[in-house]
Every structure is written in C-alpha cells, then in structure tokens.
Amino acid sequence: TSEDEWQCTECKKFNSPSKRYCFRCWALRKD
C-alpha cells in the first residue's frame, strides 16, 4: 500500500518499501 512507501529526502519521490534506493534519483534511502 502507499502508506508503506518512503519519501526520498533528495527529490521527494515516494518509493516502494522494498527499494533501498530512490527510483528517480537513486539516492540511498535515509532511515
């Protein structure tokens, strides 16, 4: 669900929880 998505701190895109990197800008997920 969208509620589980995380928001990239670099480009603000919301990504799948299973992705460690942002799909748009490839920044590593910040915990």
Rank of each mutant, 00 (worst) to 15 (best):
T1I: 08
T1A: 03
T1K: 00
T1P: 01
T1E: 05
T1N: 06
T1L: 04
T1M: 09
T1G: 05
T1Y: 01
T1C: 02
S2D: 13
S2E: 08
S2I: 13
S2Y: 07
S2M: 05
S2C: 07
S2P: 10
S2K: 15
E3L: 04
E3A: 05
E3Y: 04
E3I: 08
E3H: 04
E3G: 06
E3M: 05
E3V: 05
E3Q: 01
E3F: 03
D4A: 05
D4V: 07
D4G: 05
D4E: 07
D4W: 02
D4S: 06
D4F: 07
D4H: 04
D4L: 10
E5N: 12
E5A: 09
E5Q: 10
E5S: 07
E5V: 08
E5D: 15
E5W: 10
E5Y: 09
E5M: 12
E5I: 08
W6D: 04
W6E: 02
W6S: 07
W6P: 07
W6V: 06
W6L: 09
W6H: 07
W6R: 13
W6M: 04
W6F: 10
W6I: 06
Q7A: 05
Q7V: 03
Q7N: 02
Q7M: 14
Q7D: 03
Q7P: 02
Q7C: 02
Q7G: 02
C8V: 01
C8W: 06
C8A: 01
C8K: 01
C8H: 02
C8Q: 03
C8I: 02
C8D: 01
C8F: 02
C8R: 01
T9D: 09
T9A: 06
T9R: 04
T9E: 06
T9V: 07
T9Q: 06
E10M: 14
E10T: 09
E10Y: 12
E10G: 06
E10S: 11
E10L: 06
E10W: 01
E10H: 13
E10D: 13
C11M: 00
C11R: 03
C11I: 00
C11L: 00
C11P: 01
C11Q: 01
C11K: 03
C11E: 02
C11N: 02
C11D: 01
K12Q: 10
K12A: 12
K12R: 08
K12M: 07
K12D: 06
K12N: 09
K12T: 12
K12P: 07
K12Y: 03
K12H: 03
K13P: 06
K13T: 08
K13N: 09
K13I: 07
K13G: 11
K13E: 11
K13L: 12
K13Y: 03
K13R: 07
K13M: 11
K13A: 11
F14P: 09
F14M: 09
F14W: 09
F14E: 12
F14S: 06
F14R: 07
F14T: 14
F14I: 11
F14H: 11
F14Q: 11
F14G: 03
F14N: 08
F14V: 13
N15W: 07
N15H: 10
N15L: 07
N15A: 05
N15Y: 05
N15C: 07
N15T: 11
N15R: 04
N15Q: 04
N15G: 06
N15K: 06
S16D: 13
S16F: 13
S16V: 09
S16G: 13
S16T: 09
S16W: 05
S16I: 00
S16H: 13
S16K: 05
S16M: 01
S16P: 11
S16A: 13
S16L: 08
P17F: 01
P17W: 00
P17V: 06
P17Y: 08
P17K: 02
P17A: 13
P17R: 02
P17N: 01
P17T: 04
S18P: 08
S18W: 02
S18I: 02
S18M: 05
S18G: 08
S18K: 15
S18N: 05
S18E: 11
S18C: 10
K19V: 08
K19T: 14
K19Q: 15
K19Y: 03
K19A: 14
K19D: 14
K19P: 09
K19S: 13
R20H: 14
R20T: 15
R20W: 12
R20L: 14
R20Y: 14
R20I: 14
R20E: 15
R20S: 14
R20A: 15
Y21V: 12
Y21W: 04
Y21N: 15
Y21C: 11
Y21T: 12
Y21A: 14
Y21Q: 15
C22F: 02
C22G: 01
C22D: 01
C22V: 00
C22A: 00
C22T: 00
C22I: 00
F23H: 13
F23G: 10
F23N: 05
F23L: 10
F23K: 04
F23Y: 12
F23C: 12
F23M: 02
F23D: 13
R24F: 11
R24P: 10
R24C: 09
R24G: 11
R24V: 01
R24H: 15
R24L: 10
C25P: 01
C25A: 00
C25F: 00
C25K: 01
C25M: 00
C25E: 02
W26F: 11
W26E: 15
W26G: 15
W26A: 15
W26Y: 13
W26P: 12
W26D: 15
W26I: 03
A27Q: 10
A27V: 10
A27L: 03
A27G: 13
A27T: 09
A27W: 02
A27H: 08
A27Y: 04
A27R: 06
L28S: 11
L28T: 14
L28C: 11
L28Q: 11
L28F: 10
L28E: 15
L28R: 05
L28W: 11
R29V: 11
R29W: 07
R29C: 05
R29F: 04
R29P: 11
R29Q: 10
R29S: 06
R29K: 08
R29E: 09
R29N: 12
R29A: 12
R29D: 12
R29T: 09
K30D: 14
K30I: 09
K30Y: 08
K30T: 12
K30E: 14
K30W: 03
K30H: 07
K30L: 06
K30S: 13
K30G: 14
K30F: 08
D31H: 05
D31N: 06
D31A: 07
D31G: 06
D31V: 05
D31S: 08
D31P: 14
D31K: 01
D31E: 11
